[in-house]
C-alpha cells in the first residue's frame, strides 16, 4: 500500500530525514517510535503533503502511484488520513458542515453521488457509537474550544467518518489521560480491517498497550535504526531511548 524508498527530506538546508525505507501493507499496524526531534512528525507531514519541506531524494508510492507529486487534498481523496498532533480550530464552521463537505468531496472523487442529509446524519450516529465520542462534540464548531483530549477524540471520529485506506496518527496519544487514551485506542482498533492500514507515531510505549502493532520501527536522527515486532516497543520502554543512542555509537 505504502512504499517509502530512501526518502531524504530537509528544511532550510537542514537534513531531517536521512534515508527512510518503509513498507506498509493492507491490514497492518505499524508503530513509529523515537525521541523528540528524531523526525517522526516530519515524516507524517511529508506524507500528508505539507510543503514546507524539501524532498531531496527518494520516492513514496501509495497504492502504486507517486504520492509526492499529488496535492494534499488529492492524497486525502486517495484515502490517506493524518490525525494531527495539534488539531486546528476553525471557528464558526460546524463539524457537520465540515465533514459533509469533506465526505462529499471524496465521494465525488470516487464518482459517487453526494450523501443526502439523512444518510449523512445516520452515518454520523453510527460512527459516533463506534468511537464512543461525546455527541455534543459534533454539534460544535471544528475543534473550537475543545480540550486537548476532545480534539484528539475528534481526530479519531473524523477518521471513522472518512474511512481512510491509510491512517497516520501523529502523536495522537500525547497529552491524553488514560481514559482518553483508551477511547482513542479503541477507536483505532474498531476501525481496523484487512483492507486498511495504520501508522501510529508515538513517543511513549503506553499507547501500544492498547493498540497492538504488527511492526515497530525506531526512528532516530532521521533514520530507522531498528525494526521489529511489538517486543521492540517493550524493550524500548525498559531500556529507554539511551539504549538506541548507545547502539548507534557502537555502529
Amino acid at each position: 500500500m505504502l512504499v517509502i524508498k530512501d526518502l531524504k527530506v530537509s528544511i532550510d538546508g537542514l537534513e531531517i530525514l536521512k534515508g527512510i525505507d518503509l513498507e506498509v501493507k493492507a491490514g497492518e499496524v505499524h508503530a513509529i517510535m523515537g525521541p523528540n526531534g528524531s523526525g517522526k512528525s516530519t515524516l507524517a507531514s511529508i506524507l500528508a503533503g505539507r510543503d514546507i519541506f524539501n524532498v531531496d531524494s527518494g520516492s513514496v508510492t501509495f497504492n502504486g502511484e507517486d504520492l509526492l507529486e499529488k496535492s494534499p487534498e488529492e492524497r486525502a481523496k486517495d484515502g490517506l488520513f493524518l490525525g494531527f498532533q495539534y488539531p486546528i480550530e476553525i471557528p464558526g464552521v460546524s463539524m457537520v458542515n465540515f465533514l459533509k463537505t469533506a465526505i462529499n468531496e471524496m465521494r465525488k472523487h470516487r464518482g459517487q453521488q453526494p450523501l443526502s442529509a439523512s444518510e449523512f446524519l445516520k452515518k454520523m450516529r453510527e460512527k459516533k457509537d463506534l468511537v464512543e465520542i461525546d455527541s455534543s462534540l459534533t454539534s460544535r464548531s471544528v475543534n473550537e474550544g475543545f480540550s486537548g483530549g476532545e480534539k484528539k477524540k475528534n481526530e479519531i471520529f473524523q477518521m471513522a467518518m472518512l474511512e481512510p485506506k491509510l491512517a497516520i496518527l501523529d502523536e495522537t496519544d500525547s497529552g491524553l489521560d488514560i481514559d482518553a487514551l483508551k477511547v482513542v485506542a479503541k477507536g483505532v482498533n474498531n476501525l481496523k480491517s484487512p483492507d486498511n492500514a495504520t501508522i501510529v507515531i508515538t513517543h511513549y510505549q503506553r499507547l501500544l498497550d492498547y493498540i497492538i502493532p504488527d511492526y515497530v520501527h525506531v526512528l532516530y536522527k532521521g533514520r530507522i535504526v531498528r525494526s521489529g515486532g511489538k517486543e521492540l516497543a517493550l524493550m524500548l520502554e525498559e531500556k529507554g531511548y539511551d539504549w538506541v543512542r548507545n547502539e548507534e555509537v557502537k555502529l
Binding site: 487534498e73 486525502a76 494531527f84 480550530e89 471557528p91 464558526g92 469533506a102
Partner: peptide, 28 residues
C-alpha cells in the same frame, strides 16, 4: 491561517472551498 487551510486540504477539501468555509464560518 495556513494551518487551517492545510487541515481542510488534508480532509479532501481544496483550498478555494476551504477559504469559503473558513470565511463563511467567520461571518456566520
Amino acid at each position: 491561517g495556513e494551518d487551517q487551510i492545510f487541515y481542510c486540504n488534508q480532509r479532501g477539501i481544496n483550498t478555494e472551498d476551504a477559504i469559503g468555509l473558513i470565511v463563511n464560518g467567520y461571518a456566520k
